[in-house]
Design a protein around this nucleic acid. Structure first.
Lengths: 303, 303
DNA sequence: AATATTGATAGGATTTTCTTATCATGCTTA
DNA sequence: TAAGCATGATAAGAAAATCCTATCAATATT
């Protein structure tokens, strides 16, 4: 089996053209170097060097092998260097999954922010429901997931990022005469519009309004918050909207946002990653960035 | 120190994404593979793989190192293959030195002949006096030398190729009324034209004509046979010409070629190479080729 | 909870590699 | 020409690296 050691010694020998000198170059005794060269020659079945009194010459094959050896050794050097170049925080590719009820509001702020703070970052995004994202995380297809907690943590680490309060969104007309702040039992489940199955926000909405019977539930299976709020604006019902979505969606649709009475219901957004991942520092940095962005977005909505 | 073994195991691990399977791939126990991977990680100071219950993933660095590792391993394969591809007879570069009193007559036939018989040959030629050629041979700058024997053989091997008889060349006019065949003591040393110092033919000519005193020697220091024979044709004297040069030179100059009486003086042309050279077979083939060409040339002259 | 997988760890055997000492050869020099 | 020198090969034993078997710890599965 050919070894790098053999190549290193051979390189030295080719440079020194002298077994003893070459052995010094690689900090080894002359017999050790001789043995490795012989081993290499035997393995390749070729004479690499010509030993003569007037010095050591490479054979034709030796010259050819030397050329290849040099590029290989150089490549190995490159490998060591590039591997050791400890990539700092958030350098290189990071694959982030974000749930659909968060992504459209968070990502447009988060990505530019990350790019600004960590110029060497390469962001890959995936938007899907929590279960899909967690599966991808488990398979190594994602590095981090931003989703609503709690998440059954199966070899995963979690860090809470921010709290995202729920509001009720309804058509901005006179039909909806509700107290503000709203209490949960005022919600008419028949009027509640929900996202399609799989979205955590759907489950959360149901949890908030759980006091009423679930029988008369009408699901239009909306695929996005935006769709849902268009339905709301058209008077088809009302829906729960997370605070982070308000600024964007209120600007698009003519809706009224009604707060809940304390204790205000909310979802906890958190960052999730494989516990076995060596990127603790990246996760820390990412968590901070997301929290900051979310705060900005929510503060902007309040203003 | 990074080793190819580590890289081979790492490659296997990246392919199998499983320590046990990877170990099988490289015919080794799982702890052995684990240890090498750990060694590699420690050496590089980087986590290459993420060990998790749901499988083994490469880290970013791991991916990068893998890419480099693969090209290195491929290059090593190439090296082994190309080295093992036993170059047949007279394949690749061969550097041949030829003395000036032989080269102009031998080379134009020899080179096409070699190219025809050994298509993969790359010929490099050097024309110089014996001492220079032998020095170059000793320094590994030449692989073979074609020169007149004997050669003080200092770590060199020698093989006689052919015998090259001497003739006397003189102006083709009526002034030279000499017996044919010539006997050596008929030569008038004062009329003898010689090559400059260093050429073996000069010494051989003097040896042939040694019976006469050397005092009156007139040397014009001609640098080539052709020059010398032009001088002869112009009536400036006579000179020794080796048989192999006759066909070419007689066609160029109006000269008369007179043979010597038996035992005809001659030079022995031989092939010389470093005894330590592993190219015995090449030397054998080269010797045959040269002998064949020389025979052709001399036979052509006789016709 | 019991069982099966999977990678890490431990201890000792095996193989590789190294060093020192010495040899053989050919060159240099007295 | 013989003694001394330089150089790479060889030998023998020490050091190291690598490996294997057995076992552990942590998870995942049943």
């Amino acid at each position: 089996m050919l070894t790098l050691r053999q190549m290193r010694y051979f390189e030295a020998l080719a440079s020194a053209r002298h077994f003893g000198k070459a052995a010094e170059l690689v900090h080894v005794s002359q017999p050790a170097l001789s043995a490795q060269i012989m081993e290499m020659e035997n393995h390749l079945g070729v004479k690499l060097v010509e030993r003569s009194r007037s010095g050591v010459f490479l054979t034709r094959k030796g010259e050819e092998v030397l050329a290849r050896t040099r590029t290989i050794l150089a490549d190995v050097d490159m490998l060591e260097q590039s591997a050791r170049a400890s990539s700092g925080t958030l350098e290189g590719r990071i694959r982030i999954g974000v749930i659909p009820t968060l992504a459209p509001y968070l990502v447009p702020r988060l990505v530019p922010h990350l790019r600004r703070v960590y110029p060497a970052i390469e962001i890959e995004l995936k938007e899907s429901v929590t279960s899909r994202l967690v599966a991808d995380l488990g398979e190594g297809l994602l590095d981090a997931v931003v989703a609503a907690l709690p998440i059954e943590t199966d070899g995963l680490s979690t860090k809470p990022l921010f709290s995202d309060r729920f509001y009720m969104a309804m058509a901005d007309d006179e039909r909806n005469i509700l107290m503000s702040p709203l209490t949960e039992d005022q919600v008419d489940v028949e009027q509640l519009l929900l996202l399609e199955e799989g979205h955590c926000l759907r489950d959360q909405a149901l949890a908030v309004c759980s006091t009423a019977g679930k029988r008369r539930l009408v699901s239009f299976g909306a695929t996005s918050m935006t769709t849902l709020l268009q339905m709301v604006a058209n008077g088809m019902g009302m829906t729960l909207i997370p605070e982070i979505a308000i600024a964007t969606e209120a600007a698009r649709n003519s809706i009224r946002i009604v707060p809940f009475a304390a204790p205000e219901p909310a979802r906890e957004i958190g960052l999730v990653w494989r516990r076995s991942s060596p990127r603790e520092r990246d996760m820390e940095a990412l968590a901070t960035a997301i929290s900051d962005c979310a705060d900005d977005i929510i503060r902007a909505a309040a203003a």
